[in-house]
Write a protein that binds this DNA or RNA. Structure first.
Lengths: 161, 161
DNA sequence: TTATGTGGACAACTAGGTTGACGATTGCAG
DNA sequence: CTGCAATCGTCAACCTAGTTGTCCACATAA
């Protein structure tokens, strides 16, 4: 039963969703509500040196306005702080807070645990093989997360009628 | 170098995006502009018996209004026809047109070709193994495509500054 | 015949993006 | 030192693809 290409695509999407949805749920259980990959990526970019909204936008391939909006929610949650830059009054310097780093660590941990579960299902060898294959196919790093308010809690987005 | 769980998720997303983005581009080349997975899924649901907007919404787990909007664009493109239902004046019966089926076939073909390319990259055995593993992990059918205006032409959505 | 339910449409709203414009400030050329 | 161009952050308007709520016309079952 040689599968179709469309099935393959769906399979990949399904795998991704399974991981991300589970991760969001698990993070909520641990007290970090509604943390989505977008948030993680954003904090990571800030930690990696994107210390103002414009620069952040550039790194995430998103407009500075959109970046500012995301920063606003992260600031509200206490994950990111914004202080005036002493060297340039125009800028507001961005910083990931201790709480922010805590969330990032928790996120990593959750994903690693999920990966372990997969390892138990199909075996270490097999999982590593799968990763190697995918790496060969899509390259080691790529991934612009791109569009995605997506990557949101799916359970809350179900129509009522 | 045991990879992290987050990398695994990114890898899966990357694979999916690679296939879908390539497919959209390829379909455009063949004269079917801006055909997205959403459109394909919708037509498939209609062909499978969801012959009115409300029912379609239910099958796609989306509000009937949202379903109606999607139908509107498919109708405009001539992929789907809407005729009054003789048995129930309230209903407008949905039907996939010949052109609509043509698009679906083209889509399948493109995905199959992309899968062939992958097969050439890592080998038939290896690809089938990857599919088997993923199937074991996420189940054979799942996938609610869910959120997605996503699955849109990424190249057109890049900020200008 | 009447109560209840369903289909489709319209309106208002949300989320997360996009452009465009603008004032304040910085930095560089002259 | 002056002045022009670029940059930062913010505001406002808009887009897309969803959502809910409301409504009328019609169907159906009691």
């Amino acid at each position: 039963m040689s599968r179709s290409g469309a099935d393959l695509a769906l399979l990949l999407l399904g795998g991704f969703r399974a991981l991300v949805d589970d991760a969001i749920v698990e993070l909520t259980k641990r007290g970090y509500e509604d943390v989505r990959p977008v948030h993680d990526f954003t904090m990571r970019a800030i930690a990696a040196g994107a210390d103002n909204a414009s620069e952040l936008g550039r790194r995430l391939s998103v407009s500075k306005q959109a970046a500012a909006k995301t920063v606003a929610v992260l600031e509200e949650r206490g994950y990111v702080a914004r202080e005036p830059d002493p060297l340039d009054v125009r800028r507001k310097r961005l910083e990931v807070t201790a709480l922010g780093f805590e969330v990032m660590r928790a996120g990593e941990a959750v994903f690693d645990e999920l990966r372990d579960k997969w390892k138990q299902k199909i075996g270490t060898k097999e999982l590593e093989r799968l990763e190697a294959d995918l790496t060969a196919l899509v390259g080691p790093s790529p991934v612009r997360v791109d569009a995605p308010g997506w990557l949101a809690p799916p359970s809350t987005r179900r129509p009522t009628g």
